[in-house]
Structure formats: C-alpha cells, structure tokens
Design a protein around this nucleic acid. Structure first.
Length: 509
RNA sequence: GCCGCGUUGGUCAAGGGGUUAAGACGCCUCCCUUUCACGGAGGAAUCACGGGUUCGAAUCCCGUACGUGGUACCA
C-alpha cells in the first residue's frame, strides 16, 4: 500500500517559505524516508500566487539548503507532470462536470451581490450559520432549483457560474487522522463549497483530491487549519475515486507566535526581530527583502533540528538530532496535537550547539563568504580553520564569527579606550614600551615564549600580570572579548602585534 | 454566533491511575577562567477551573473557562 508522501502548499501571496511550511516538508521527508516511500513536494499556482516570479525556484532552493530533496521533479517533467495548476485546468473541470452529472454537484449562478444579500438576510434572521448549504440552496440561483432548460439557457448565454459540491445533511463523516485519531463531522455543518471557480480554476478542495488521486499519493500532511475542510475532501474522494484510494491524512499542529497567541506570521518576525522564512526572499512586486534563517547565520543542521522538535520529541532527554537520527527516530504517533509557540532564543541555542558540535569544515566556506562581504579576503585556509576553532564556542550565529575573529585578520576598527584609560598610568605606559622592545627581539614568535616574556617584564616592573592582560587584550582585539591573548598575538604575528600596541599607546598617552 | 481542535513552569516539553511531576531554553547564584564565552554546581518557577469515578487522579469521564483554527469564487 505504501506509495508516496506528499506535501502540497502554495507559497504565501508575496512568496517566501514560512517556518510552518518547512516543518511540514520536514515531517513528510522524515516519514517517507523512514518508511521507504517517495517524498514529493507539489506547489500550487493559485490566484494569489501564480504570478509571483521565482517563488517555485526559491522554495526548492530552500529545501536544498535544508537537505530535503524531493524524489520527484515537481517543477518540470516526470511521470505526473504538469504540476502547475494552471496547466491542469482541463482535468479539474472534467471531474467537476462528472460530479454534476452524477448529482453530487451543481452549477451556481449567484453573483457576489446575491451571496452578500443572502448572508445579510441570514444574519438578520439570527441564523447560526451564514453558509451556502442544504438549508438555503433551494432559494438560490442554481441548477438544483432551476429547471434544466433554464440552466441550459444560462449556460448557453455564457452566464458566469461556479460548480458547488452538494452536501447532503444528516450524515456523519468520520476519518482517522494519523495524529489525532478518529474525528467525526456532522454534514449539517458542512457547506456547499465551491469546487470550480468562475474563471475555470479549481479551488484547493477540488485540486488536492484530483491531484492526490492522479499522482497516487498515499499520505498527505498539512496544517491543522485544514481540518475543518476535511469532510469536503472526504466526500469528494467518496464520489470521485472511492474511499479506499484516499490517502491517509495527518493534520500537523500550528506554529504560534512567541508573545500573545495566534499563528506565527511574517509580521511577527519583523516586529520581534527574527526571521520567519528559511532564506532571504525579495518580493518581486514591492522589492521588499525579508530576511531568512540562512542569511542571518543559521546552519541547516540546527534549522532542521529546531523545527523537528517544535511539536515532536522522541520521549528521551535528547535535544540534538541530526537529519539521519531524525529519520531513524521520527514517528507520527509522537507528534503533538497542540500548537507550539516559537522561541527564538531556543532556536539560537540549537545553532550554537551545532556550531560547537560540527567540525568547522562544515561551515568554513560560509564564514569565509561572510568575511569577504566585509572586505576581509581569506587566503590561508589552514590558518582560517585554526582561528575558527579558537572562537567557535563563543559564536551563536555564523555571523558572530566576524565580531569574534575579524581582528585576527585586520586591526580593530575601534579601541575600547574607556575600558583601560581610568587605570592607565606611567608605569603601564613604561611596561608596554619595554614589552614592545622585547617582543621585537624575541627569537621565536610563539605563544609560550610570549607569555613568559610578558610575565618576566611585568615582574621586573613590579606589576601584576592581571592588571596588564586586559589592556593588552584591548590593544589587540579592540574590546573585552575573545580567546587567550597570547594565542591571538601568536596568530597575528610580530608586526601586527607591535603595530597594535603602539597605536593604542598613542591613543592612551 | 456556529463547528472543529487544543490546554503540564515565562517557553519547548517527559510522564497516560500511586513519581520528591524528568529534561531543555531563558532568568538568578556560585565555581572555573587575570577578558568574553565554553564547561561545572545549584536556585526560583508548573499539572486552567469545577464536579464526578476511584482506597488513590496531572493521568479516566462530564461540564466550565480560556486559547486557537475554520466558517470566502484564499490557501
């Protein structure tokens, strides 16, 4: 039975790939890989999204960065092409017409104004429901109420129409969700949803069902917001293809905003200062750039990890999981039913852990690019790797490597003079002058030697090394941070060390 | 309003009749470190409420509250 797992989603109206979207894809991927199935990603081009240039490519770039490559090409070619909804229009219509013929759907000619009027009237009557359903459809302008000849006349005269599903009342529809178990719906509460729009495009309801059937999908994951429309989809499966072909559904919990309540949106990220998209996205219409996790310095390993455990855990105390481990340990039964608030601090913690855990070779090139973007061109990769190893423990984001290590490659832009000035005196001035002379003559430029020399001169001047280390550090790195001072001096070399000392002394004098 | 789904510290969460109710993030204290981190030790903080069932309920049942999603020719 097991065949294909798919995720299907439309990019947001402005483009961009949201955290929730990536997590849905991730769970699909894990489930498919664990069970030996194919993993498919399908993207819709709907009214809202089909004109967003580059959105499809962008999404696949994001998935590639995350290491979640689909098994089937979902943009071009392949057994089930075409994939774009607009290129499949004719198929959808065919199935919609079939439903009409068999009495499970009907033509509706109501104008938007008429629909508004109907809802106003229901509201005025104090009705609980404002839906277009079994209780109102015989009062509306559709092929159920009209005589066949009247319907035909409207059709012939090119009157715009939609096709709506005909939902019979007083039925219980039930299905088993992989996460939530058995769920029942009373069809009295299900309305006659539009299946085919006036412009000939299908709604999501028709498209998912038809596509899932045609593409032989066995498992379908989607966000919890789709749960209320599940009965419509089940009815369509029943009428069109038979319930025994219907995929198994999993409705994933929502990712919520950190403060207050509600679904996490791009606006929350802007407001609270963190990304919500996987990668940078520029809206082609407005040219507005939205930052992505990749660009602010996240590792894909951390990104997958933090997303996977937002709504799932393996029941042990383990927090850090590689993709391979996730594939091995993931199970749908352990996915939560309730939504989880997104916590950016914890997200950063995962990245920090992965930076520490991974060998620097995994991200050396990316850090190199970050440096290049700030006009530091790295030529010695071996030394670069050594420096990265020296500072990786104190970097939470990849971009932190710049602040933590740029001084290894160029003199600091600014010296934190106020940090040393208050305790600066002639004795220290003298010490550093003497130190400079000694360092100039030191035969071997090496960390241990440096430290010895430093301490001997300090002792000779009756100064405690402790009072001198901080000034020395600030001279070399510009501030009160960074790895061991003598490591730094050893790494940047004699020339640079001497220059930085004299530069700072001039500022302090 | 109606319908669906949910509810264990501030957040992510384990636990599914008997536990001192794990662990992680964040916060605080201390140790380590002649900087900042890392690391280590500790601390504050939780079962939404009310009724049942039971010898015993965070756990099972029923209500209530709260949250959230849907209620579109959006997905």
């Amino acid at each position: 039975m097991f065949n294909k797992v798919r995720v299907r989603f439309a990019p947001s109206p402005t483009g961009g790939l949201h955290l929730g979207g990536v997590r849905t894809v991730l769970y699909n991927y894990l489930f498919a890989k664990k069970n030996g199935g194919d993993f498919i990603v399908r993207i819709e081009d709907t009214d809202q999204t089909r004109f967003v240039a580059g959105a499809e490519e962008y999404i696949f770039n994001c998935l590639q960065w995350c290491g979640l490559q689909p098994d089937e090409s979902v943009i071009h070619g392949g057994e089930y092409a075409p994939y774009r909804q607009s290129e499949r229009k004719a198929m959808y219509r065919q199935y919609a017409e079939k439903l009409v013929e068999e009495g499970h759907a009907y033509y509706a000619f109501d104008t938007p104004e008429e629909l508004d009027a109907m809802r106003e009237k229901l509201k005025a009557e104090g009705s609980n429901s404002l839906q277009y359903d079994h209780s109102v459809r015989m009062k509306m302008n559709n092929s159920l109420r009209l005589l066949p000849a009247e319907t035909q006349a409207l059709l012939d005269s090119q009157t715009p129409y939609v096709i709506r599903i005909k939902v019979n009342p007083h039925e219980i529809i039930s299905f088993t969700d992989m996460i939530r178990g058995d769920i029942d719906f009373d069809t009295n509460n299900v309305d006659d949803k539009v299946l085919l729009k006036a412009d000939g495009m299908p709604t999501y309801h028709l498209a998912v069902v038809v596509d899932d059937y045609l593409m032989k999908i066995s498992h379908a994951f989607r966000g919890e917001e789709w749960l209320p429309s599940a009965p419509v989809h089940i009815l369509l499966w029943k009428h069109l293809f038979g319930l025994n072909h219907m995929p198994q559904w999993a409705h994933l919990p929502l990712i919520l905003k950190p403060d207050g309540n509600g679904k996490l949106s791009k606006r929350d990220g802007d407001r609270l200062g963190f990304p919500v998209y996987a990668m940078d996205w520029t809206d082609p219409k407005t040219n507005e750039l939205t930052k992505g996790f990749k660009e602010i310095g996240f590792l894909p390993e951390a990104f997958n990890n933090l997303l996977a455990v937002l709504g799932w855990n393996d029941g042990t105390e383990q927090e850090l999981f590689s993709l391979e481990e996730l594939v091995e340990k993931f199970s749908m039964e352990r996915v939560h039913k309730g939504g989880a608030k997104f916590d950016f601090d914890k997200a950063k913690w995962y990245n920090h852990e992965w930076i520490k855990k991974l060998d620097v070779s995994h991200y050396q090139q990316r850090v190199k690019d970050i440096f290049a973007g700030k006009d530091i061109i790295i030529t010695d990769d071996t030394r670069f790797a050594a420096v990265l190893n020296l500072v990786k423990d104190r970097c939470t984001l990849l971009t932190d490597f710049y602040t933590q290590a740029s001084f290894f490659f160029k003199a600091p832009d600014a010296i934190d003079v106020p940090a040393i000035k208050p305790k600066w005196d002639d004795k220290k001035q003298l010490f550093f002058a003497e130190l400079s002379r000694a360092l100039e003559l030191m035969p071997l430029w090496e960390q241990g030697q440096l430290e010895n020399e430093f301490k001997e001169i300090a002792a000779a001047n009756q100064l405690k090394p402790g009072e001198l280390m901080l000034p020395f550090r600030v001279m070399l790195v510009g501030g009160k941070f960074g790895p061991g001072v003598f490591d730094i001096a050893a790494s940047i070399g004699r020339q640079n060390t001497l220059q930085r000392i004299s530069h700072a002394m001039a500022l302090l004098a």
